[in-house]
């Protein structure tokens, strides 16, 4: 099994790197490749089973777009073929139609999805930040997490959404769903240690990658942390501020 961690040198905000750090403990047999921003992605020249990207700054979104735009066809081919993509935080915006800036200008996205990521300004001219805890579902699975961002993804149809919202902010204010999915491409605004906080989803991904009877590293500990968090999020607490 080959996993390519794309641009961990810049996609490393908010603890996102924890996901692959933990994931590789669950699949010690996997070959994991870190591809820095200045290097050519491995997926262009060989097949990989999983590609991941994490949260980055807005300027690094642009740098990544500039590097990946020439390879849109290859990315589409891999997505169609069922390659697993895990895109956390604002990195999934790169795969939409465009990122629209507060001045109305747009950066062209990779176009795997049709949504537009839209940024807004506060009254005094700063990018507006949105913070929210999250409780949702993925099939039978209960998903917990957190989002903190400068934008919303507008134009996601319910059919291509990843999670249903139970509590907290979805892909955009009022949206009853969160993130995007196409085949095995999973994109979510949930950021930081998203996998580390959702052991069942880790198992699900391991299953997609063909691991028989997936086993989690430190299973009791990850499960306990998940259960405590889930119980707290089900209480009447403040979700966004």
């Amino acid at each position: 099994m080959k996993i390519e961690v794309l641009y961990p040198d810049v996609c490393c905000l908010y603890g996102d790197k924890a996901n692959m750090r933990y994931f590789r403990l669950c699949v010690p047999q996997a070959e994991v490749f870190d591809t820095p921003l200045s290097e050519t992605p491995r997926f262009l020249t060989e097949d990989v089973d999983m590609i991941t990207l994490g949260s980055c700054t807005e300027s690094n979104q642009e740098r990544i777009l500039a590097r990946l735009r020439p390879h849109m066809e290859r990315i589409r081919e891999l997505a169609d073929r069922g390659t697993v993509f895990l895109l956390t935080g604002n990195s999934f915006e790169i795969f939409g139609r465009a990122i629209r800036h507060p001045d109305g200008s747009e950066s062209e996205g990779l176009g795997l999805f049709d949504f537009t990521a839209e940024q807004e300004l506060t009254d005094d001219g700063l990018l507006k930040r949105f913070n929210s805890l999250f409780l949702g579902t993925f099939g039978e699975m209960e998903i917990v997490g957190y989002t903190s961002r400068f934008s919303h993804a507008v134009g996601i149809s319910e059919g291509e959404a990843l999670f249903k919202v139970v509590k907290g902010l979805g892909s955009a204010p009022g949206a009853g769903f969160e993130g995007v999915r196409k085949n095995n491409v999973f994109g979510t605004y949930l950021l930081g240690p998203f996998l580390v906080q959702n052991p069942a989803f880790v198992k699900y991904l391991l299953g997609l990658l063909g691991v028989d009877e997936p086993k989690l590293a430190f299973e009791d500990a990850i499960q306990k942390a998940y259960e405590v968090r889930l119980a707290e999020l089900k209480k009447d607490i403040v979700f966004d501020d």
Partner: peptide, 9 residues
């Protein structure tokens, strides 16, 4: 509320 714990990673 409930603290976001990403920073500890």
């Amino acid at each position: 509320s409930h603290e976001f714990i990403g920073w500890i990673w």
